[in-house]
Design a protein around this nucleic acid. Structure first.
Lengths: 146, 146
DNA sequence: TGTTAAATGCAAATGTTTTGCATTTAGGAG
DNA sequence: CTCCTAAATGCAAAACATTTGCATTTAACA
């Protein structure tokens, strides 16, 4: 079994959450789906493929649990709320194609110097940050040009 | 009259939008309110104070017009959608206190080097970006410590 | 002052997310 | 392996934010 998946199962267990079919299904969906940013409806539909009897409330409740435990990240932009699996360990940001929603990780976090500056020059205490780059991926750009 | 307001009125006029009381009221709210990030409900309530007969659809429709014309910016984080007046000219980002929602502008945009990197090293075409720092402002931090 | 397109108010619809509650189930104890 | 219990689920209904259709009003300009 996939290493990342194994680790997530481990985390869930440690925190006392049950490994229900719905949850396993959702995690596999995140791991296997081509698109890494999914909204609740998409996830619901994919879960439904396996167990036709699932329900939006289950999906939402599980997204909440996964989000609160740092396994999944919730991202809102332009009305749409999407979810993605958190990379294990190293935190990073994404470039998001606004046409196909392909997500490309940024190789570094631009927050480093920024944080240094904020801490030394302001009295604001930074806790969290949110960086996203929107634009066109190579594919979509080529389509646009034709 | 405030210079920024004058300029916005000018812009609206040029684009053929009417300067209705609701719109003037909303713009003044953005300019005068202590809090610079407001959600639709807050704006609605403030508008209502002046003209008791206003309506959510008016507020939303105007927020849309203002957003589409670059006068107002729409920001979503953690479920909440908020709006703020765009700084005239220079674009900037904010540090947002997650307790009182006070917003403190960042004195520079960390996107500069990032953009350079992306353009030279990836085939992604960056169009837009979104940077926000969340944490505690000085005031709230002091309150927390007591 | 009159005309007209644009903006408004209202009520109802939409879409997403949440909740209460009865039922089912994962996972540990025995 | 079986039982027990807290946690998770499914369902229906509610809550909430946002949008829409339509009749009425109004800003802006001739």
């Amino acid at each position: 079994m996939n290493d990342q998946l194994k680790q997530i199962y481990q985390t869930m267990k440690e925190k006392g959450f049950k490994l229900t079919p719905a949850r396993k299904s959702m995690l596999k969906i995140f791991l296997e789906s081509e698109q890494k940013l999914l909204n609740a409806k998409q996830i619901f539909n994919l879960v439904k493929k396996k167990s036709k009897k699932t329900n939006f409330s289950t999906v939402y409740r599980n997204l909440e649990v996964l989000t609160e435990n740092g396994i999944v990240e919730k991202i809102s932009y332009n009305k749409e709320t999407k979810y993605k699996l958190r990379g294990q360990g190293s935190h990073h940001h994404f470039m998001v194609c606004t046409l196909c929603y392909k997500t490309i990780p940024l190789p570094f976090c631009p927050f480093g110097e920024l944080e240094t500056y904020i801490k030394s020059d302001t009295d604001f205490l930074p806790i969290n940050h949110h960086v996203e780059i929107y634009g066109y991926c190579n594919n979509c750009r080529q389509k646009l040009e034709n």
